[in-house]
């Protein structure tokens, strides 16, 4: 089966401001990232602030062009943003942001907003569009009374479900969700996560789920890619990566998640500063914070190697262990 979306060695670089006396700096927000997502599958992208998660999501949707590498959507090259072909492709891929209130127009009713993408992409007759609105609203668990309301008359969870309904109205095959539940309270968050899962089961939509909440990711994702300063440093099935992280950064990340009901105990606390994308360390970007770094890590960038269990890891030391075991 061919993947719904595929990225091959994509990079995206932003030109920094530079100062009066400073040379222009470049931020390599995404660097040499390859990934693919199949139908009915959820790939989570996790990593610290500034690691390039949102930029990657925008590159996948063609909203930000890749400065190197290529993105393929359903076996075809992604067309340049704004072109007619791209708009056709865009109807099949949707983006969901963190803040539901910002994503909705305060003046329009929920029904009008859910219907918007159908009008924009001229999908179906007016009757069919109205029918689709009712159908997709029911799918996400909104009640008919909600449809005639405006965003401020709904709860946070209902608003985010309205956003999801709008994204699903055109029957997309790919959904990129950028921190879709981060702004929600836990009790509401649980409702929305269940909604995503149910929709995926019903429609087979492929999802890229960007989040910094590892507990949420554990619950919803099939596979997880961990980013550090623009690169994927580890990727593996969700059950494998949380039970047995291999990259030292993934280990620290998993260990940093506070477990409700458990005191601090003896978990590993990563020392050192958060990474600065404008001053990317040489070699492995993680080496200044890495508890096991050796000389090689300062000079050479580890490649993302595949190993057993469908896992990819970019670490000289993990690669060595692998080599020794082989």
């Amino acid at each position: 089966m061919s993947p719904i979306i595929e990225a091959n060695n994509v990079s995206r670089t932003y030109a920094g401001h530079g100062g009066l006396f400073r040379p222009k700096s470049y931020v390599r927000a995404v660097e040499d990232v390859s990934l693919s997502v199949e139908q009915g599958e959820t790939l989570a992208v996790i990593g610290e602030s500034g690691s390039g998660k949102s930029t990657l999501g925008q590159v996948l949707l063609g909203l930000a062009p890749a400065s190197a590498g290529d993105v393929r959507f359903r076996d075809a090259a992604l067309s340049p943003a704004g072109s007619r072909q791209w708009r056709e492709q865009r109807a099949e891929m949707q983006l969901i942001y963190q803040d539901p209130l910002a994503a909705l127009d305060p003046r329009l009713t929920i029904a009008e907003q859910i219907r918007e993408p159908l009008d924009i992409h001229q999908i179906g007759t007016p009757e069919e569009r109205a029918q689709r609105v009712d159908e997709v609203a029911r799918d996400v668990g909104l009640q008919p009374v909600h449809l005639s309301r405006r965003p401020h008359e709904l709860s946070g969870g209902q608003r985010q479900r309205a956003v999801i309904a709008r994204a699903m109205a055109s029957k997309p095959v790919l959904l990129v969700c950028d921190e879709p539940v981060s702004a929600l309270d836990v009790s509401i968050q649980a409702q929305v996560i269940n909604t995503f899962r149910r929709l995926q089961r019903m429609s087979g939509v492929a999802m890229v789920f960007i989040s910094h909440d590892l507990k949420v990711v554990r619950n919803i994702a099939h596979r997880v890619a961990v980013m550090y300063l623009g690169r994927i440093v580890e990727e593996a099935p969700a059950d494998v990566i949380f039970a047995n992280p291999q990259h030292p950064y993934t280990k620290a990340l998993v260990s940093s998640v506070p477990i409700p009901g458990k005191p601090l105990g003896d978990r590993v606390i990563l020392q050192g500063e958060p990474p600065n994308p404008a001053a990317r360390p040489s070699g492995c970007a993680f080496h200044p914070r890495c508890p096991v770094a050796v000389a090689q890590c300062r000079t050479s960038v580890p490649e993302l190697h595949s190993n057993a269990e469908h896992r990819r890891v970019a670490c000289h030391l993990v690669a060595e262990v692998r080599g020794a075991a082989a």
């Binding site: 009790s187 509401i188 649980a190 409702q191 899962r197 507990k215 998640v257």
Partner: peptide
């Protein structure tokens, strides 16, 4: 009880989360 149930667990699986119906 509802609050504790609705938090996903890092060592948990992928079953539906238990939710508190309604809103605050």
């Amino acid at each position: 009880v509802g609050l504790l149930n609705s938090i996903p667990r890092l060592d948990g699986g992928q079953d539906d989360l238990l939710t508190i119906p309604g809103a605050v």
